[in-house]
């Protein structure tokens, strides 16, 4: 996870997060949201660097954000499965 803030690595990490949480059949709405989340995380990395934030803090922040997003995805998928008519 040390190189997580590199764009390509971040994309792979987010993809892995989505696969772990959602399995292979990702519902389209969640797919769109996850892609948008990646875009926003990348944007955050860019703005943090532009603001001169220390690289170790950038890494720590992104790790925290991705971990909590994964936990939330799992909760959402569980609720969707429970609510299926």
């Amino acid at each position: 996870m040390t190189e997580i803030v590199e764009t390509e690595t971040l994309e792979k990490t987010m993809k892995a997060v989505a696969e772990r949480a959602l399995g292979e059949a990702v519902p389209p709405t969640l797919q769109t949201l996850t892609e948008r989340h990646l875009e926003k995380v990348l944007n955050l990395v860019e703005t943090m660097r532009a603001a001169g934030v220390d690289e170790s803090i950038v890494r720590h922040s992104i790790r925290e954000i991705i971990e909590s997003y994964e936990q939330e995805l799992v909760k959402v998928v569980a609720q969707m499965a429970e609510d299926r008519p």
Binding site: L44, A50, M80
Partner: peptide, 24 residues
């Protein structure tokens, strides 16, 4: 600009919660 990026993430988290309340 950095705070705007964080605010966008907050909105995404709120939207994610909303997905669970929508019938697929």
């Amino acid at each position: 600009r950095m705070l705007v990026s964080f605010a966008d993430l907050v909105m995404n988290e709120l939207e994610l919660r909303q997905v669970a309340s929508v019938d697929a």
